[in-house]
């Protein structure tokens, strides 16, 4: 059991579990905090620095205030936090100004920047097409998924998200998780004729043996079967066809081969029972 501690956010008191990150606390309590590099499926990162808040605490013998990223700052007793102080807003505006210089074409960044009163960048704009802000969400999610197909390469101003040696990534599953979590929607991918292309590699989609519909790649299915020990049978048909099949199975079990008054159930099902 986690102990509860008292903290103050924007002069209002909250009782929260010790060690819980401030961003989560704010989100639960409807306190808006902008963030670009945070996703619940991965560990907090502290890269975009947009979620900075000002906090005051006692260290040794004196009080001091400092900026900290809410996504990584754990709640502790007596913590005082301001989420929209002048210092906070100034830092956020400069960060958005910098991001706008990096990705002048990004609608997402433009929108958040405008919300903070930054309508155009005061810095030198970066040349280039992509809207990558190097938040690292794609690479972190790819690690989490287990594929580890992409990573950041180089460092500093030259840093980029890359596949190994810039070639089509051999370990990619084509699951598009990276594209989904990308806050600026900059990971390009296409889907046509049962094929999906992402990171310069084309994947064959598994077509439903019944209707030909497709939603996942062969690599995804093979990965699931190999690492999660699931039956390959599960993946042969699409959701709609599987649903029709299970409806038919239940109907068959219930109405055509009715035995006594007992309600049979689905193959491995439990929970809502069919009577």
């Amino acid at each position: 059991m986690s102990t509860l501690v008292k903290i103050k956010i924007d002069e209002k008191e909250y009782e929260v579990p010790r060690g819980r990150y401030l961003l989560a606390i704010c989100q639960e309590n409807g306190i808006p905090i902008p963030t670009l590099c945070h996703h619940e499926s991965v560990e907090p990162w502290g890269g975009c620095r947009l979620c900075v808040v000002e906090f005051r605490k006692k260290r040794w013998d004196s009080w001091w205030t400092e900026l900290a990223t809410a996504c990584l700052y754990p709640a502790e007793d007596g913590l005082c936090v301001w989420t929209r102080s002048e210092k906070v807003m100034k830092a956020r505006r400069t960060i958005l100004d910098l991001l706008l210089a990096r990705c002048p074409g990004s609608e997402v960044i433009t929108k958040i920047a405008a919300e903070h009163g930054v309508y155009q960048t005061s810095f030198a704009k970066r040349e280039g097409e992509d809207n990558c802000i190097l938040c690292g969400l794609c690479t972190r999610v790819c690690d989490r998924v287990g594929a580890r197909a992409i990573a950041t390469a180089l460092r500093g101003a030259l840093k980029e998200v890359s596949t190994p040696f810039g070639e089509p990534p051999p370990d990619c599953l084509g699951c598009l998780s990276c594209a989904h979590v990308c806050p600026t929607h900059t990971i390009g991918h296409t889907e046509a004729d049962g094929k999906r292309t992402v990171w310069g590699r084309t994947f064959e989609l598994v077509r439903c043996s019944g209707c030909g519909a497709a939603s996942v790649t062969r690599e995804q299915v093979e990965y699931a079967v190999r690492t999660k020990n699931l039956s390959p049978e599960y993946f042969v048909k699409c959701d709609a066809c599987k649903r029709r099949e299970s409806a038919a199975t239940f109907a068959g079990l219930l109405f055509d081969e009715r035995k006594g008054g007992e309600g049979p159930v689905g193959p491995t099902g439990s929970g809502p029972s069919h009577e």
Binding site: L176, S177, S215, A224, L230, E233, Y234, D239, K242, S246
Partner: peptide
Amino acid sequence: TRCVRCKACLAACPFGN
């Protein structure tokens, strides 16, 4: 909030639910 929309669940559910 955690879903990354890889659709693996959709493909794996044996009942299409």
